[in-house]
Amino acid sequence: MKSLTLGEHFGESKRKIQFNNLIISEAIIAPNSHVPWHYHENAYFLYSVKGSFIEVNKKEKIQCSRNTLLYHNWQEPHYNESISEGVNYFHIEIEKKWFHEKELDPNIIEGNINIHHPEIKSLFQNIYKELNVQDAVTPIAIEGMLLQAFALLQRDAQKITLGHPPKWVNRLQEIISDSYDFNQLDLQQLAEQIGISAVHLSRTFPRYFGEDLSRLIRRRKIERSRELLEKGDLSNAGIAYQCGFSDESHFIKAFKNHYGITPGHYRKGAMKDLKC
Results as ranks from 00 to 15, higher is better:
T161M: 09
L6R: 13
G86W: 00
H164C: 04
Y71V: 07
N88H: 13
Q193V: 00
A157Y: 11
I194R: 10
K159I: 11
H250E: 11
M145L: 09
E93M: 08
A237G: 12
Q148S: 14
L4K: 01
P263N: 08
R203V: 08
P118Y: 08
E12G: 05
L172T: 07
Q148D: 09
H200S: 13
S48V: 15
I108H: 03
Q158C: 03
E8A: 13
N236R: 11
S48C: 15
Y39D: 12
L152K: 15
E76L: 05
L153G: 12
E130A: 12
I113F: 05
L22W: 03
A136M: 06
I113Q: 15
I23E: 11
E223M: 06
W37P: 03
G238R: 07
K268C: 00
T262Q: 05
Q75L: 15
N42I: 00
H117K: 01
F99C: 07
L70Q: 11
Y89M: 04
K102M: 14
Q158H: 01
E192C: 03
Y128N: 13
E95M: 09
Y89C: 08
N32G: 00
M145R: 10
F124H: 10
I142M: 01
R15L: 11
I217G: 02
N257F: 03
L69P: 02
K268R: 14
E174Q: 13
E26D: 08
L234D: 12
G7H: 02
S235T: 15
H164W: 04
P139G: 01
R267K: 13
F19M: 08
N170P: 00
Y259Q: 04
F10Y: 15
L69W: 06
R218D: 10
L234R: 14
K167A: 04
